[in-house]
């Protein structure tokens, strides 16, 4: 474990907590893409499938983190699609998720480290996570604005994988550890946030709201 990965995971936890708090406190999921949250839940379940297969006692923080990620993302989907369904902005959350899931699944079958079920699921989860934020970014571009709390969520969510890139550089240099699939997908994922990061740094940090050119 290195500092980049630690802060990456903390940033990821923060993102999940910020979103949950936003929905719970405002009792509304306006401006939140339910599809992105569904895709994240699928990512966690397919990536941590080992938790369900050979359940080992919660002997280390990694197992606990995996369970937190899965339960928090499923609970977030429950809040969006059931509890606060009336506030779900279905009209603007209109990116076709199939256009993300099918290519990720196809690519996972073509480019992977070994062709077995668990590895394919892990690879699918990595590819899907890289593009899972697109419905959320699409929704913001459709509505033309993002609530400040939602931009904090996006900043934490985008920073998590950006910090993981620093972690991979660190591990390449000190542990000669390279996981090419995760690195390539992580770079793509972080690039998708670039224009948002620019808006966040120039706008939100100055206390302004993010308003996209409609």
């Amino acid at each position: 474990m290195n500092i980049f990965r630690l802060f990456g995971d903390l940033s990821h936890l923060a993102a999940i907590a910020i979103l949950l708090l936003k929905i719970w406190k405002t009792r509304s999921c306006a401006g939140v893409s339910g599809k992105t949250q569904l895709l994240f839940a699928v990512c966690f379940i397919t990536r941590y499938i080992d938790l369900f297969l050979h359940f080992v006692s919660l002997y280390n923080t990694e197992k606990v983190m995996k369970l937190i990620y899965i339960s928090a993302s499923v609970f977030t989907c429950y809040l969006i699609f059931f509890k606060f369904k009336a506030t779900y902005d279905g009209n603007h959350d209109s990116m076709r998720a199939e256009f993300l899931i099918v290519p990720a699944a196809g690519l996972a079958c073509l480019i992977n480290t070994k062709f077995d079920a668990i590895e394919i699921l892990w690879t699918f989860s990595i590819y899907l996570e890289a593009v899972a934020i697109l419905p959320q970014l699409f929704l913001i571009s459709k509505t033309g604005e993002a609530e400040t709390i939602t931009s904090h969520y996006l900043f934490a969510q985008g920073s998590y994988r950006a910090l993981y890139i620093l972690n991979w550089i660190y591990r390449y240099h000190y542990e000669s550890h390279v996981d090419t699939i995760a690195i390539v997908a992580g770079v793509v994922q972080t690039i998708l946030y670039c224009d948002f990061f620019y808006l966040y740094i120039t706008k939100v940090v100055k206390g302004q709201k993010i308003v996209l050119p409609a």
């Binding site: 550890h177 390279v178 090419t180």
Partner: peptide, 10 residues
């Protein structure tokens, strides 16, 4: 020689 261990990251 680069090692690809089992995916040991979240």
């Amino acid at each position: 020689q680069f090692t690809i261990k089992d995916h040991d990251e979240l």
